[in-house]
Computed example of a mutant assay.
Amino acid sequence: MSTAFRRVAVLGLGLIGGSLLQALRQLGSEIVGYDVDSAAAAAASASGYPVAPTDAAAVHGADLVVLAMPLPEVAAAVQSLAPHLSASAVLTDVGTLKQPVLSAVREAAPAATFVGGHPLAGVEETGWNAADPLLFRDAPWALTLEDDTSLDAWLRMAELVCDLGGRPVPTTAADQDAAVGRVIGLPHVLAEALALTGLAGGPLGLSLAAGSYMSGSRVARTPPELVTTWCDGNPALVDALDDAIAHLTGARTALAAGESVFPLARRGHAARTNWERRRFEPVELVPSVEALRALGRAGGWVTAVLRDDDGHRLLGMRPV
């Protein structure tokens, strides 16, 4: 049983929220779910999970409240539940972009103890029926650490993520959004472009489409409404697109001149293989904002939160 939190309310019962609710029950936590979508709430209830009739009822007595609804719904949800939050409760979320959620919480619930979260564990399927309690195993899970973030609350969240099998990655909201613009937003935009470009080639091209096309366009199967919430409002995606367009323009220029794309292929191959071959070493940290941010920016993560007579100690992994 996880000791980080006694009672957890999960608001939003789609893929991530539903998976979290199921995983928390496997840990032995006291849980309750809520969803404004009556069909999602009914599906969770029919599966044997407790579902509250209102957000106020869900968060009552909870020491952890998880916002798991789509980003456009977050601001209204925070405003609605803020009067019902316990003063000692920790508020977190699971959204892809962190700065918009941080702004919404600071505006509507400035007294809340907030730790932004982003489990990088999504799949193309959505909804309660796609939920999987094992979804978070070995998945990176960004946990934001701003200058005014409670370190104790952050450590409790990191402990819970470790209990779920995830890898807590300390970061700021700004750094997280800049990173996901390149590794989430950009791949989705490129996948959409590839799907359309392949379609424009006609039936023959699509009949010959194999691994490269299928792998490259796979995430284009994601519902468009979700893709927009991961991309819109993230200025870092513009910089990422500029970089990608520069690479594509270079390849086009070379081909138009009768030259080779080999330089791009060589550099891309090296980037991908070097990423796969990264090595890590264990590290022990006395937790502080500076040490945790440095670990995250270096590409490391937390593996355990230990408690002893001297306070907390962290075990983690960092690249070498």
Rank of each mutant, 00 (worst) to 15 (best):
R7T: 09
R221Y: 12
S29H: 03
R137S: 10
M157V: 13
S86Q: 09
P287S: 10
P70W: 09
V183R: 01
L285Y: 14
L199V: 10
A121L: 10
A246S: 14
R7F: 06
A210E: 10
R106D: 11
T96E: 10
G233Y: 09
T172E: 06
P83T: 03
R167F: 05
W141D: 09
R7I: 02
A58I: 08
L204D: 15
A77H: 14
G268M: 01
D175M: 02
A52G: 07
V227E: 04
P119W: 07
A77Y: 08
L64C: 04
L295S: 05
A109M: 03
P263G: 04
I184Y: 04
Q79L: 13
T92F: 10
E281S: 09
A82S: 13
V36P: 04
R318Y: 06
Y49S: 00
S88V: 04
L314G: 06
Q99Y: 00
A220V: 06
T172H: 02
D55A: 13
P203C: 11
G268Q: 05
A41V: 07
L292F: 07
R25T: 07
L204T: 14
V123G: 11
E30I: 06
R218A: 05
G233R: 08
G18H: 01
I16G: 07
E159T: 10
A58N: 08
A41L: 01
E284I: 15
T229E: 14
A236C: 05
P170T: 06
H118N: 12
S45T: 00
E259F: 12
T126M: 08
G48N: 11
R277G: 04
V183Y: 02
D232R: 15
T222L: 04
T54Y: 08
D148L: 09
G296Y: 02
L81E: 06
D239A: 15
L314V: 06
G127C: 08
P223F: 00
G258A: 12
P223E: 00
R137N: 11
S38K: 15
L315M: 10
L155C: 09
R307C: 10
A254G: 13
